[in-house]
Write a protein that binds this DNA or RNA. Structure first.
Length: 482
RNA sequence: GGCGGCAUAGCCAAGUGGUAAGGCAGAGGACUGCAAAUCCUUUAUUCCCCGGUUCGAAUCCGGGUGCCGCCUCCA
């Protein structure tokens, strides 16, 4: 039975969709103002796994993610880059989509943009005005937090709490400092839209309410986003959505992923201490970054470090090696000894392993634990397959076949595509034939047991960044990683 | 100041009141001419500190200490 931690209740709840067999998920994406960084990617991967697991469990999932493509920051950044707001948003939207593709994140059912849903946004604001939850002043429309009785239920604070420690700019025209803009006048000369209150832009929070309801209905199952969005963004979304529709709950399960910090500091665009996804992907494969993120539970904060990312790569390699090894065995159709299922042959319990994996995933998508199970599985398989007295009996063969199928199944849930890593090719400036020639000479030396010459060649190549390895199948060389 | 979260081996990390998963690094071993790569084995009498509840607590309660997030249109 799947349990999900719901920020609204602050506890794990059994997952029951509003409509049998179907799940609607809305995830707050990002403001497309720059290249994505590891924090954005963490969010993307977290919800991708949630989505994949729900699909694995047989649900028909509608996954909606937004791009905030108009606001002050977009305009500001567009000016810096000498682009229009539309061009800038388009540029970084495409960049983001490329980034997440490398992380094997599935495409959303719908990617929605504020600028493409202005009508829905205006319609919603009109309803809020009619129902008395909003007021207009000088071309700006504000939501009145005092008129919505449940304000604060998500973040667990009362209006009094918030006003007490207020660090909010006092805006004279607001009735309450916590009131937030639904519609705002745009700065002179910037892209804006006609509305009943004059030309302007939507406020930040309203787009998510309008678009989620448009695509998923007045109530839907899961609303996700970064924990930093709990207040004020999601609090405001709930207030305006429930006030507008009269339906509760707006979203049944509120899911929040933890932040990514760097050297103990919060990593964000404003601090400027982040790695962009592109920078990381120059040095690390998408699958490694994804694996690294999944070794921690999605709600825990991550203190990002390249050392850990590196270690994750090593850890992942262990899994990859085992799978490649299984596939190699499956391809050796020869020599399946007739020996029937050996007496005393004890094979790992595959069903139990899979079950354990699913239990971990059922427990609020505990990928860290699930990956632990994968490693247990790896050890169990290696122990069998690498045993000195291992022979490919019929029963072993079918075991391997099934083990391979289970690996594919559970790694698919995690979205870890561990197919053979790219084979590194020769270093620049070094001619392959030359290397081959050197290795040929080395082989001759080895035949004569002239270890000094053989080792000199190996060490020399090593200094040039070429790693030489002797294997039972012959010598292998590859370019040093990184 | 207000709200919330976290403290588990050198590092990362999971953990449903019943006697500490997993990974990385380290150590030992197999393999190798030696290596490399790979594989196997091994590494916490104890879970920040002090009390309490309980037959029994890393897990629950109270207090303390330390760190972090949010309260700023950052995922």
């Amino acid at each position: 039975m799947l349990k999900i931690y719901n920020t609204l209740s602050r506890q794990k709840e059994t997952f029951l969709p509003l409509e049998e067999g179907k799940v609607g998920i809305y995830v707050c994406g990002l403001t497309v103002q720059n290249y994505s960084h590891i924090g954005h990617i963490r969010s993307a991967v977290a919800y991708d796994v949630i989505r994949r697991y729900l699909e694995y469990r047989g649900y028909d999932v509608t996954y909606v993610q937004n791009f905030t493509d108009i606001n002050e920051k977009i305009v500001e950044r567009a000016r810096e880059e000498g682009l229009t707001a539309e061009e800038l948003a388009e540029k970084y939207t495409q960049a983001y989509l490329e980034d997440i593709e490398q992380l094997n994140v599935k495409r959303a059912s719908h990617y929605v943009k504020a600028t493409e849903n202005i009508d829905a946004i205006i319609g919603m604001i009109e309803t809020l005005l009619e129902k008395g939850y909003a007021y207009e002043v000088n071309g700006n429309v504000y939501f009145s937090v005092e008129n919505y009785e449940d304000y604060g239920k998500l973040s667990g604070r009362s209006l009094e709490d918030m006003q007490a420690g207020a660090r909010i700019d006092i805006v004279e025209e607001k009735k309450n400092p916590l009131d937030f803009a639904l519609w705002k006048k745009a700065p002179e000369g910037e892209k804006d839209w006609e509305s009943p209150w004059g030309r302007g832009w939507p406020g930040w929070h309203i787009e998510c309410s309008a678009m989620s309801m448009k695509y998923l209905g007045k109530s839907f199952d899961i609303h996700g986003g970064g924990a930093d969005l709990i207040f004020p963004h999601h609090e405001n979304e709930i207030a305006q959505s429930e006030a507008c529709s009269g339906h509760k709950p707006f979203a049944k399960y509120w899911v929040h992923n933890g932040p990514v910090n760097l050297k103990g500091e919060k990593m964000s665009k404003s601090v400027g201490n982040f790695y962009t996804t592109r920078e990381l992907l120059e040095k690390y494969r998408g699958v490694e970054v994804r694996y690294y993120l999944l070794t921690k539970h999605y709600r825990s904060p991550i203190d990002f470090s390249l050392e850990e990312l590196e270690e994750a790569g090593t850890s992942l390699k262990r899994i990859t090696n085992t799978i490649n090894n299984l596939r190699r065995l499956l391809n050796t159709k020869v020599d399946i000894e007739n020996k029937k299922a050996g007496e005393g042959e004890k094979l790992p319990d595959l069903a139990a392993i899979k079950d354990e994996f699913l239990q971990a995933m059922d427990d609020d998508f505990n990928t860290a634990r699930a990956i632990g199970v994968v490693h247990d599985f790896v050890t169990a398989v290696n122990r069998l397959v690498n045993a000195q007295d291992f022979v490919l009996t019929e029963s072993n063969y079918s075991f391997i076949k099934e083990a391979d199928a289970i690996f594919t199944e559970i790694l698919g849930i995690l979205g870890l595509d561990v197919r053979e890593a790219d084979t590194q090719t020769a270093g620049e400036g070094l001619h392959e034939p030359l290397i081959e020639l050197l290795l040929e000479v080395r082989e001759m030396a080895r035949q004569k047991k002239d270890w000094a010459v053989a080792d000199r060649i190996r060490d020399g190549l090593n200094e040039l960044g070429i790693i030489v390895r002797d294997t039972p199948q012959g010598v292998i060389w590859e370019k040093e990683r990184g």
